[in-house]
């Protein structure tokens, strides 16, 4: 792709900034900063991947994937910063949620060993896990705030933390799964996923591309489910103190 074409595509971002300004949404600064950040990050990632693809050491891959988990946890934990230890919770959730399905697919041979496969696919899994964690944390905080009087009524009647929080756990897990479920519903009808498209464009057999893409989609579903479950089950308990009192930090 020509650099000119890339610059031209930024007009679309400017259009979004214009819409935000016209509708007084006050998102202009955030859109500009986010788009610049994405540009910078991808350029740096491009340079780094060029170097990393030359190295074939599992320790280096593991370190990179762990770093990705840390960054993802930092971003995702911020979505539930009213919950004490939200960053640690997001890290544990993302680590478990992405590592288990990823390792499983490595063992069965869907993901080949090597930087060219493990780094991009690892990034995809961790990114997916981060989204699920963010949505689950965000929804949990909203539900606890919304159902505060109901939770306190149950506590005042002698409920345990789990009994009192029962009605906020399920919506948080469900909400975290929505993006993945919608992707599974729409795949092949609304959009053709990136990996499959790339494989076909590169001249691969479409049916092989489909099988590979399906394995990836199933892995992402497992990742989202596991992440939401771990994050929500760890996070709801942190909304209460040892005296079984509802405690959320100021945002």
């Amino acid at each position: 792709m020509e650099n000119q074409a890339l610059v031209f595509s930024y007009i679309l971002v400017m259009g979004t900034i214009g819409l935000s300004w016209l509708n007084q949404m006050h998102l202009e600064k955030e859109i500009i900063l986010s788009s610049l950040r994405a540009t910078g990050q991808l350029i740096v990632a491009g340079f780094l991947l060029t170097v990393i693809f030359e190295i074939e050491q599992i320790e280096i891959f593991s370190f990179i994937l762990l770093f990705m988990c840390l960054v993802a946890a930092r971003i995702s934990g911020g979505r539930g910063k009213e919950i004490p230890s939200s960053y640690s919770i997001a890290f544990v959730g993302i680590l478990i949620g992405s590592l288990l399905p990823f390792t499983l697919l490595c063992i069965v041979g869907v993901i080949q060993m090597g930087a060219r496969f493990m780094i991009p696919l690892g990034g995809m899994v961790i990114g997916n896990s981060m989204k699920a964690s963010s949505v689950a944390l965000n929804r949990l905080v909203a539900e606890v705030g919304h159902q505060r009087s109901q939770i306190e009524t149950l506590l005042s009647l002698g409920a345990s933390v789990r009994q009192a929080a029962r009605t906020v756990i399920t919506p948080a897990i469900k909400a975290g799964l929505i993006p993945t479920l919608d992707t599974m519903k729409s795949v092949g009808l609304v959009h053709l996923p990136g990996i499959m498209t790339g494989y076909i464009i590169a001249g691969g057999d479409p049916m092989t591309a489909v099988k590979f893409q399906l394995a990836i989609i199933y892995m992402l579903a497992g990742t989202s489910g596991l992440t939401c479950l771990v994050v929500t089950l760890l996070a709801y308990k942190k909304c209460f103190n040892k005296q079984l009192q509802l405690r959320l930090l100021e945002s």
């Binding site: 009087s149 009524t153 005042s156 009647l157 005296q243 079984l244």
Partner: peptide, 12 residues
């Protein structure tokens, strides 16, 4: 806490 709350009931 659960025992106390059952014994000291509160109507909000």
């Amino acid at each position: 806490s659960p025992d106390l709350r059952r014994r000291v009931g509160m109507v909000f």
